[in-house]
Simulated assay, not measured.
Amino acid sequence: MIAIDRLRKSKNRTRILRDVSFEARPGRVTGFLGPNGAGKTSTLRVLLGLDRPESGTALVNGRPYASWPRPLTMVGAVLDGSGAHRARSARAHLRWVAASNGLPRGRVGEVLDLVGLAGDARKRAGRFSLGMSRRLGLATAMLGDPPILVLDEPVNGLDPAGIRWIRDFLRTSAAEGRTVLLSSHLMGELAEIADDVVVIDHGQVVAHGTVAEVTGEHRTLEDAFFALTAEAGRTWPA
Rank of each mutant, 00 (worst) to 15 (best):
N101E: 08
R18E: 05
H93A: 05
P160T: 03
L228Y: 02
L182F: 10
P160F: 13
R122E: 00
I166S: 14
D51W: 05
L33K: 09
V150I: 06
S173V: 06
L149E: 11
V20T: 01
R18Q: 11
L59Y: 14
T172A: 15
M187Y: 06
G106T: 10
L33Q: 06
D51M: 04
P64C: 06
D80E: 14
D51K: 00
R219N: 11
A224Q: 08
A92V: 09
A90Q: 03
R178L: 01
K11I: 02
V180R: 12
G39A: 11
S42H: 14
D145G: 10
T220H: 10
I193C: 01
A98S: 03
V211G: 12
M142W: 13
E189A: 01
G27M: 15
A212R: 14
A3T: 03
T140G: 10
R135W: 14
R70Q: 14
V29W: 08
A92R: 14
L112D: 10
G162E: 04
V111K: 02
R135I: 15
T215S: 11
S173T: 00
G76S: 09
H185M: 07
W236C: 04
F225L: 07
N101T: 00
H93W: 14
F169Y: 08
H185N: 09
R122W: 06
G31Q: 05
A161S: 15
D51F: 00
